[in-house]
Design a protein around this nucleic acid. Sequence first.
RNA 1: GGCUCCAUCGUCUAACGGUUAGGACGCAGGAUUUUCAUUCCUGUAAUCCGGGUUCGAUUCCCGGUGGAGCUGCCA
Length: 489
Amino acid sequence: MRTRFPPSPTGMLHVGGLRTALYSFLVAKQTKGEFLLRIEDTDQAREVAGSVDAIVRGMEWAGLTVDEGVMMIDGVISEKGTRGPYHQSKRLPIYRKYVDQLLASGDVYPCFCTAERLEKMRNDQAARHVAPMYDRLCTKLSTEDIAAKIAAGEKHVIRMKVPHTETITFNDDIRGELSFKGHTIDDQVLLKSDGFPTYHMAHVVDDHLMDIDIVTRGEEWLSSLPKHLLLFRYLGWSPPRYAHVPLLFNKDKSKLSKRQNSVSVDEYIEKGYLPEAMINFLAMLGWNDGTTQELFSMDDLIEKFSLERVQKSGAIFDIEKLDWLQGQWMRTIPLDDFVARIRPLVEENYPEAASDKDFTKKAALIQERITFFKEAPDMLGYFYKEPTVSMNLIASKKQKIEAADVPRLIKILIETLDAISEKYWNEASIEAAIRAAMEKESVKLGQLLWPLRAILTGREYSPGAFEVAAVLGKGVTMKRLLTSAKEDL
RNA sequence: GGCUCCAUCGUCUAACGGUUAGGACGCAGGAUUUUCAUUCCUGUAAUCCGGGUUCGAUUCCCGGUGGAGCUGCCA
């Protein structure tokens, strides 16, 4: 199957767009077909510089590799494929050719109505509670009138003629049978007065010429489907299969918008989300494989995805599940890869980390509690910089530690740990020693561990005291304990 | 207003006429020999309403209701 993703370059890559693109991509890949990227830049007014670049980068980040059309080649936005150009703005003569064909067959007609007249017409219709539709005034023009107006250079558009007596039915891959009454369908503008096609014309021509088998697009296109079906018929082509994907919503069920959510893929990249988490999340928002599996890699999705199991109703874009998935995927990263990702970040803040032979051990301590790579420097800070420890932190009601007890507890810790030789300094021996001390001094385990951990890290939360002490080494551990003992906390 | 689509826990969803309506996120509680996180366990919570078809409806049909999208020389 050949599928496609056709974004408009009007801003950043939208997460909703990425989900639709993902579904298209999965269909293409699981059938060993091609996935194309086409740029729908037919509205010059809305175009935003840099959008194509953001879209292409976003797709690459997500792992949606494009086989044909617009893509990054050696760092520059290029086109590849035999059915180009893949920017619609470069295809104007092609659309013109088919519009002329439709003009000749009488399926479309020129319309000279001004924006003012159209607006007045719609206001009148609204006042009368009837559907706002073009009143077909220009269909009354004679061939001579038309020729004269065109010769005089009058601005005009080309509209399609919709048969009002027909009911158009179609079978959508996700929704099943759909039907639309002809008299409710407007005579859609196909070619604008600036010579650019509207989406409707461009979509039909391009998806036919580019041999697209399945058009996967958002549900917002459902109401214009009959127009597209009619166009395929007028042009003598058979339509592709269509799969109208349900929309993504804000918490209040309105169409996902940036007023209420981060909708740009760039924002998620910036925040540090893993593409695996985002893809997994987007795929599950409206699709499942029927089992209780929650974690899907791209390969799993390619294998198991099917349009038939895509939900018909829209889904609320709920970040909480994304965040959970983010944690899940963070934990699947092999330790070496994890180290490679966080080490540069940590070195930026603590240059001494560059020569740290124990960096991997430290990284291992935080991998199971980290959500985003960028948290790493903060989480590892106390390994490279003396922490500031306050009595406020050590004295803990929950651990039954009174400020008055602290000097004694620190003294026990110092004596206990100092007895362990450098050679046997490891997690197991530290634990054994502390436990023995706990018995001997009849204190609770927490009364020793909480101060130890607090003094070593200076933090309320951190990996366990045994692990930290072991990785820190006897020298640093003792030094920090001694410092705390000396200071008047 | 018109057209079209949709409707299971708060959220994402499973159940293709017969289940104590299942799972996940979240939330609450507990366990995991210190905190946080992880992991594990337990709990919490749903078939929009009304008819019909059927021995039996979450499931099929109809009608309401509710929500959404479209209604542009935007896509």
